[in-house]
Design a protein around this nucleic acid. Structure first.
Ligand code: MN
Ligand code: MN
Ligand code: ZN
Ligand code: ZN
Lengths: 140, 140
DNA sequence: AGAAAATTTGCAACTTAGTTGCAAATTCGG
DNA sequence: CCGAATTTGCAACTAAGTTGCAAATTTTCT
């Protein structure tokens, strides 16, 4: 049902009041299907036939970020990782688990951690993000 | 008491069985005095008179990382940030707070969050790291 | 539909963080 | 002080991300 995905992407873009362009639809489709945060080069690869300039991909992600559809996820690597924000609440993104052995990363959606409460006077915490390290099922 | 700091750095290096070189002592001194994670260029600046090649600084940090004296802290920026690991437990580094208004980052040492427990079967969590966003006392 | 306005795209050139190979310099252990 | 082990600086390189601008596309207006 890729037609479905396409329609979904277009609908999302329309709702966000973003121009519905080929690039945006394609990138959004990739992100809708992704199960973990992706780098721009990974997104490019998954675009397959539909090639876009990397600048375009970055700018597309930027626009999706701007309207809050996408988050930059917090990885230990050099490059940025992007993912849809739809598994995140107002105050926290779901935790990400990275296996220290095989390097794979998993989104731990569905678990919400207790919100940290400000310990030092005067700090107002709006959002929190947690990264976990350890061994994944395959490596344990 | 900069002589003190120097001696402390040398002692630390000796204990870690690392060659006690000018570069390492200098970088370690900077980190010992730092109150937040620093990028290599920030470290370089703080070295002041004592100039070192940036490659040397990166390699120095690498060696400190190798023996666990230093951590890469988790920032939303492009460049890596380093800090001493002495405010971290075996299972978690202290949380870092970044102000969304002024951009300043604060180490929230002294608060230990409850360790996340693995929700999905098979995941073994060894370490966790938390990043907080909000308004700092000055900006609130 | 057709035209004008607004936005996005590709390209090429650029910036910056971090890496690598290698020869010269430094550190350490005896 | 000597020799082996390690670190350093340099120069060249890689890779991620950015910028300006003209051409192409999408949307809006009539
Ligand atoms: Mn995720
Ligand atoms: Mn810290
Ligand atoms: Zn694994
Ligand atoms: Zn602030």
């Amino acid at each position: 049902m890729r037609r479905d995905l396409d329609l979904q992407a277009r609908q999302i873009l329309k709702t966000a009041k973003l121009y519905c362009t080929a690039g945006r639809v394609a990138v959004l489709r990739v992100l809708l299907r992704a199960d973990k945060p992706l780098r721009q080069d990974q997104i490019a690869k998954r675009l397959g036939k539909k090639r876009f300039n990397k600048v375009t991909i970055y700018r597309t992600l930027e626009s999706l970020l701007r309207v809050g559809l996408v988050h930059k996820a917090f990885m230990a690597e050099r490059a940025w990782h992007f993912e849809l924000a739809h598994n995140c609440s107002e105050t926290q993104c779901h935790p990400h688990f990275t296996c220290t052995k095989c390097g794979s990363t998993h989104c731990l959606t569905g678990m919400s951690l207790p919100m940290v409460k400000s310990p030092h006077k005067g700090f107002h915490i709006h959002r929190q993000q947690t990264r976990l390290e350890g061994l994944c099922p395959a490596c344990a």
